[in-house]
Computed example of a mutant assay.
Amino acid sequence: MAISYRMEIVEDKGGGGFVVFYPDLPGGITCGQTVEDAVANAADAKRAWIEAALEEGIEINEPNSLEDSSGQIKMKNTAWY
Rank of each mutant, 00 (worst) to 15 (best):
S69L: 13
L25P: 02
A43S: 12
Y5W: 03
L54D: 04
W80C: 01
F18L: 04
D24E: 05
A43P: 01
G14E: 15
Y5F: 08
G32D: 12
N77H: 13
D68T: 10
E55L: 12
E56M: 14
D12A: 02
V35D: 05
N41C: 02
G16R: 13
A45V: 03
W49N: 08
S65P: 07
M7F: 05
P26R: 14
Y81Q: 09
K13S: 02
S70M: 08
Q33T: 06
N77C: 00
G28K: 03
P23Y: 11
D44W: 06
I3Q: 15
N61F: 06
K46S: 02
P23W: 12
A45Y: 02
G71P: 09
A53H: 09
R47D: 03
I29Y: 08
A79R: 15
I29T: 12
S70R: 09
R6N: 12
I29P: 00
M7Y: 05
I58G: 00
A38F: 04
V20P: 03
T30N: 10
Y81V: 04
A53P: 02
E55P: 01
D37N: 09
A43I: 12
S4H: 11
N64D: 14
P23E: 03
V19R: 13
L25F: 08
Y22K: 03
Y22M: 05
S70Q: 11
G15C: 07
D37Q: 15
Y81W: 11
V19W: 07
E51S: 14
I3W: 06
A52Y: 10
C31W: 09
A45R: 09
V10T: 07
E36G: 08
S4Q: 15
N61T: 04
S4C: 05
S69K: 14
A79M: 07
A2N: 15
I50N: 00
E56L: 14
T78A: 04
T34P: 10
E67L: 11
P23D: 04
P23C: 03
E56I: 08
R6S: 10
S65T: 01
L66H: 13
E67Q: 14
I29A: 06
I9T: 04
D12Y: 10
G71V: 01
S69I: 01
N77G: 00
A42C: 04
E59H: 12
A48E: 09
